[in-house]
Design a protein around this nucleic acid. Sequence first.
DNA 1: TATCTCATTGGCCCAAGGTCCAATATCCGG
DNA 2: CCGGATATTGGACCTTGGGCCAATGAGATA
Lengths: 202, 202
Amino acid sequence: MTGPSETIFLVDDDGAVLRAVSRLLRSAGYAVRGYPSAEEFMAAHHADTPGCLVVDIAMPGSTGLELQEWLFQSQSSLPVVFLTGCGDVPTTVRAMKGGAVDFLTKPVDEAELLGAVSAALQRGRLLRNKRSDRARVQALLNTLTAREREVFDHLLTGRLNKQIAADLGTVEKTIKVHRARVLRKLGVSSIAELVHLAERAK
Amino acid sequence: MTGPSETIFLVDDDGAVLRAVSRLLRSAGYAVRGYPSAEEFMAAHHADTPGCLVVDIAMPGSTGLELQEWLFQSQSSLPVVFLTGCGDVPTTVRAMKGGAVDFLTKPVDEAELLGAVSAALQRGRLLRNKRSDRARVQALLNTLTAREREVFDHLLTGRLNKQIAADLGTVEKTIKVHRARVLRKLGVSSIAELVHLAERAK
DNA sequence: TATCTCATTGGCCCAAGGTCCAATATCCGG
DNA sequence: CCGGATATTGGACCTTGGGCCAATGAGATA
């Protein structure tokens, strides 16, 4: 169920919490890495790392919310579970609006934490799958020349070669050639597949 | 900006709050209807009503969370803003996970409430637009006979008439006729448009 | 029973797409 | 200046799709 190198990143300024939660998650079979501050985590994090983040809200230096915002800006795909001792309603709302998977309060129920982590990992998998699929399609589209890309766009709207030729100020025969190249480069053999491919790109 | 009959539904067991918030929203130009209990609101509500719901969490009878769950079960498109005096973190998390637009605490800042209501109304508009569009497409698809629907599905995957005929155990000519009927019934003139139409249905 | 819908099939013709061939012109980097 | 990539165009040939007319058979319904 767990991916090859999924890691739970744990950020908490309280060393005792860090050790306790870390031990709990490890005993559940997860790979865990702990950080005593948001800064140290940020220095080590890369955007496409598989796993999830479990983070305290109130910390010296960057807070959990700031870390969440930083992940968003970094286009990271790492889902966030908040774990805090002193949560208030406005903070909870901000965290959840910001896309947090869950917002738990200490002392945390063991099953609750494991459930949240499991959900976060699952969400991360889906997100990474979607992203990598999209990246593959984008890479394919980037192999098209500018002209082929124009033809591609017209094909998506269902226009005939003749019409595309008129739009682009050339003749049908030329479009026919571009069309064939577009289909071959993108590895599809019908307009239906072409449209489905385009859907995956956005 | 505000739709023709958008209404803000206000549910709070405290008559004073009901009157005060109601006056505030009305003075901002909104149409408001107040209910002293979730039950009375539920009795009057229909799933496609345009507007949004502003509801207290703690009430005698059904609570705000129960009302939110009821709206979900009813497939209502009404976005929810919670407004409460005694919110705790777990409740906030449940509400936000349940799709709430916002979760505000009394005494509420006027601008905050107006902002949340505006966001909720906007979300409701998008949701209703999406739903009605989907319903239109579904209605179109329902005009297809069972056989036409089969051909439709195969067309979406980009198969040739000849191949579809083999799959369905008939000859190409028959598929050709079905294909033409499908395109005409759905009001499209190309496979690309057909695929786009199908995308809108789900 | 008569009518209607639906699925089926045929023929015919034309339009459009797919695939070979080859050729010319431009532009860009080595 | 030359080779490579790109855009362009032409021809020939075959396949596929679209429209039109006509017809049959099954099943449901009035």
